[in-house]
Structures are given as structure tokens and as C-alpha cells.
Design a protein around this nucleic acid. Sequence first.
DNA 1: CGGTAATGTGGGAGCGCTCCCACGAGGCAT
DNA 2: ATGCCTCGTGGGAGCGCTCCCACATTACCG
Lengths: 350, 350
Amino acid sequence: MSQAAQRPAGPAARGGGRPTLEAVAALAGVGRGTVSRVINGSPRVSDKARAAVEQAIAELGYVPNRAARTLVTSRTDSIALVVPETETRLFSEPFFNDIIRGVSAELADTEMQLLLILVRTKKERERLATYLAAHRVDGVLMVSVHEDDPLPTLLERIDMPSVLVGRRSDVEPLSYVDADNAGGARMAVRHLLRRGCTQVATITGPLDMEPARARLSGYRRALEEADLGSDEALVGRGDFTESGGREAMRGLLERRPDLDAVFCASDLMAAGAMQVLRETGRRVPDDVAVIGFDDSIIARHTDPPLTSVRQPIEEMGRTMARLLMDEISEEGRARRQVVLATELVVRSSA
Amino acid sequence: MSQAAQRPAGPAARGGGRPTLEAVAALAGVGRGTVSRVINGSPRVSDKARAAVEQAIAELGYVPNRAARTLVTSRTDSIALVVPETETRLFSEPFFNDIIRGVSAELADTEMQLLLILVRTKKERERLATYLAAHRVDGVLMVSVHEDDPLPTLLERIDMPSVLVGRRSDVEPLSYVDADNAGGARMAVRHLLRRGCTQVATITGPLDMEPARARLSGYRRALEEADLGSDEALVGRGDFTESGGREAMRGLLERRPDLDAVFCASDLMAAGAMQVLRETGRRVPDDVAVIGFDDSIIARHTDPPLTSVRQPIEEMGRTMARLLMDEISEEGRARRQVVLATELVVRSSA
DNA sequence: CGGTAATGTGGGAGCGCTCCCACGAGGCAT
DNA sequence: ATGCCTCGTGGGAGCGCTCCCACATTACCG
């Protein structure tokens, strides 16, 4: 019987036939330890041995077995991107795409794998908790956390490296990356004031979300700086949705029909608001100037095209990944916070 | 505050301290084999033993170590979602989100992990090839493949379970899930004809992509069915982008200023086309009716709101996942193809 | 010149699991 | 009774790697 006959399909066909580190060692005429050292970039290898090993690796097309490595190191070389599903619809649509793009770009020349975990139900959330507690990933990226989300607390407790995009409140203990929501809002309102508007209203997001609060405070700040008293009748409550924007706009017009500008905390709400303005015979921007937030795809397609505050979303994704990698490699590192600048994209609505 | 003292850091803190199968066995007073059988749902376990094991698992909060399992079974319990990055921007934006949502929903009560892999550069593509050839995942989901993409061929060769969304051509050998592009286009054009339009133009996508070809053929089919000869001057070439739509529209108007309807193979192109129609003083839908494709978010925000063909994207994602799971579990299973129906969402543009 | 310190190397042990073989206990026909 | 299944069970072997210790070998010091 020849060697080959000893391995009759089955296990071999199931993926067992790939070259192992041992095979590389044999071909290169060195020991397993040396091959391992070469692969892991240890400096304690002679040039000669390294060359032989690299040659053998290339020849065999060897790729290290991740599971075996994980088993012994208990590093998984993968991180999870956790997205509460309820959120995904609220987001200005490209948000999620761009975050992923950024994260993925930053991870590209790393060994890190990106695991995508959407959380819908309570049951799934519990399952995820177990999963994380079992340290199945080296780190966690969390998108859009509500104030009362228990997951971040868990992450903190089990000391899992993790980075949020957006913070839960302004005393967020975990690492996070955020856009300068307050600054963006302030910039938008200043733009409206510079245009000559004097009765500037705002439509806020749901105020149990930090970004919504921050945008509102930026609005207030800009008015204060211009020595314009803030009239609470000029503040309408929305929920980041289009219909929410419509309703809030109607309420504002009822209370303050003389308003001449609206800063909306999302483009979707701005789109809703503009519909109402048009219905009530007001022209944008001549009668009422409108600014949105997010610079989402719809901003370019409203009529007139919407001036909006852009967040550097892809950059945020990249930064998150970078922070997380650092947190993973430097054990016991302090949590970090990064706030990235926003930018006003001026179109025709203001 | 003294949490740190609890765990002396080092190996234990690195994740080594979790209960193993052996610990469960000891606590339950059975052998390792029995615990393993319980976990993997083998029927050959007495009720008594099973109960004892389940009790022990709950007590210890045991979660099996995936790496160890992978090492011996060479199943990874994870699948990759591969997205060529160049594509993501082209997509009607929610596409990607919805696919993910669908896939994730289907995977929710499975052990399967979802790995997200964006491919940007040639180098990354090669790396992915190595990765896949090393069988690092049990299966692959591929979004948007170009005809000349070498990856599907690789998947075929290494006999990796895989499902595409959209096919490369109509003789696609791999499993795929697709929307009925031709049917949707046909439906759209019939709607235009029923409205009384007689000079129906179309703006196509890039014809090296199957969906673009299919939508064009649906357009032709509808015209044939109505015994309207097809005039090649009524066919404008676009590229799925807004500016492409604008240019194609200008070309069409030059050739056939008498046209009274345009079926566009994407919403973005429809938006571009509508801009040009407005600029040239034509009213939509009175002078020229317009229909888009994708029912993307911008369809609701154009002026007038765009009638569009909707694809059941989330359903496509779910179906993909289901097909892939089947392909993974039933070895040697024939590849399957699923085409899902599209739907015309009528708004004001036609 | 010996002695100590680096430097490079091989290979045993063991990570936590599944697979599978061997074995005892019971069931049912002969 | 004897034989021969089936069922449930325990535990050895081994998946492919990294870690680490022991052992060369060479370099450098006084």
C-alpha cells in the first residue's frame, strides 16, 4: 500500500489535506519552532533559516491554521462590529456603509477579521452577552448606543477592549469616536445668522440620544453668542424621521409663523420640514432657510438641494478601528475619546 | 475599584480561566464524551445524563471553545460576505444594508458567524483568494459580481459552498439569488404603455452587468408584446450614476425630442434624467413620464416622487443565507438558482 | 586562554475539543 | 441458559499551533 492509499478521501477532502507548519519545517530542514518564529516575525532567526522557511512556505502555499493558533494563544484575531438593528433604519442611510468602509480599510493590512453582529431582539442581545463574556472576540466596535443599553456596561465589566461610535452621555467611560455634533450645529446656525435670519428655529432629534442633545446645545450656543435670546417656542421636537420633521415643522409654524430659518438635526427631518413649508406656501430659502444634518444622499435630491452638516463618517470608522487595535495590543491602556470635526456643505436651501 | 486585584492579570486575564468541557464533565459526574454528545445534540444519551450535564453547563456558564472545535472538525462555523468595494457606491444605498439585514436575520438562530470582507484592491483580492483557498470559512456570499471577476471561478474550483446575489450571466453555474430584473422592467414599461405613452425610451445601466442587460431586455420585451417596433434611438446608455443619467437623457432628447416616457434602469439615473427634463422645460409626468429602478431612498425625495421598481432585497439576503446553509450541510448538493419577483411602486412620476 | 553572555535552534507539552474504539449492561431471540 | 444485538458510556488519541526549556553554537569580555 502506498502512502496515498492511507488517506481515502473523507477527512482529506473535508479540508484536512492542507500543509501544516510541520510540513514546512520538514521541507525547510528546520524545526517547528523556527518556522513559528519566522511566521510571527521574531528577530531571533538566522537569515539562512528564515530564507529556507520562506521558500518552503511559498512552495507549499502554506497558510497558518487560525484555529490552532487561537487555541493556544487565546487571541481570536477578530473583532465584532455590533449594530443594534433598531438603529440601522434611523441612520442616514450611508452611515452604516461608510463606517464599515472605514473600519474595513483600517483593518485591511492586519490579520484581524471583522465579524458583523446585528442585534434585533432581547434574546439575541442576551446571546451576544454570553458570546462576549466567553471572549470570542478580541474587541468590540459598537455603533449607536442608547443611553440605557446594557451592553456597554457589560463590555466595561468584562474588560473587553471596545470603542463606541457616539457616546452615551458626555461622561462616557468607554473609548469612543464621535463627530463634533455641537460644533456642527453651531456652525450651521451661525451660517443662518450670517445670512441675515433672525428668527431661527430648530427641530431636534429624540433627546434621549446624545447626538440630538449635542446638536440642540450647539444651536443654543450659536444664538447666545449672537446675543439672541432663545425662545423655547422656536424649538420643535422631532425623532430623526421624515414624518417627525413634518409634524415638528407644523407645530413651529403654528407657534411662530414669523420664523425665517430652521436648523434640523437630520436631513430626513429637513426633507419633511421642507414639504410642510412648501405646502404652506413658503419658499426655501427665500422665506425660510433650511439646514439639515448628516449630508446624506437625500440632501442632494431635495428641492432645493439641502445645505447640510457633514460628518466624516468613513474617517470615524477608521479611527474606531485604530483605537480598538491599540486597546487590544496595549493591555491596560486608558480608554480614549476622539471627536472629529464636522463640515458645512452649502447647497441652495440656506 | 479594587477589581484589578481580583485577577492577577497574565494568562488568566487573557481569557484562559473559562470553564472547559472537562470541568463540566467533572461537575456532572460523567465523561467528556457524554458532555460532547449532549452539546452536539446526539440522541445516544440517557435522559439522566443529559439533565446532569445541562445543569452543570448552566451552573458553570460554560460556552464551548470554538477554536478547539474548529481545530478538530475543520468546520469554522463562519461564512464570509464578500463585497467588492468598487460596487458599494453604485448600489442604491440601502441595498447593502438590507442584504446584511436579511442574511443576519436568517443566521440569527444558527451558530454561524458572519464575516464581512470588503475587497478594494488587487492585492486584497489576492489575499482573499489565499484565504478562501485555505478554507477559512465554510461558505461564501458574494455581492455584485462583474462578469470578469475571477473570484467566483476560484470558488467553483475549490468547491467552496457559495451563493451570489445577482448572476454573472444567464448561464451562471454557481448558486445565486436574483431579482427578476427583466420582469420588473417589463412591468414598468407596460405601466407606461397603459398610461398611453407611445414613445417610450430607456436609459440602461452598464451593459457588462447582467442586471443592466436584463432590464434592457425586459424593456424590449414589453414593447414587442405591444407590437411597438423598437427604435434603437430610444435606447440611451447610462452607467447607473446620476450624471450618467443626465447625459443619456440629453442624448435621447437630441435624437428623439418627441419621446413621452423614459424607463431608467436605476433611480439615480432617473433623478439625473428628471433634472434634464426640467431644465429643458418638460413636465414630469405630463410631458414625459419617468420610472426608475430600485425604489431607493431617493425615489421618495425626487420632485415629483419617483415611480420605481422595487426588489425584495432583504428577502434576497435571507434566501442567500438559506441556500448557503443548505449547500454547506448537504455535501455535493447541486447548485441552485432563485429568482425573486419585483414589484412596481407607483408614485407621481408615471 | 577560560568564562560568561548572548544568539539560534529543536522539540516536548499542552491548549479544548471531537472522533472513535472498547467495554459493560441490558434486551431479545434462540 | 447461550449467543448476539443494541444502547449508553468513558477516555485515549490527536487536530496544528505557540510557548518555553534545554541545548548547542558563537561572540565578547577580562
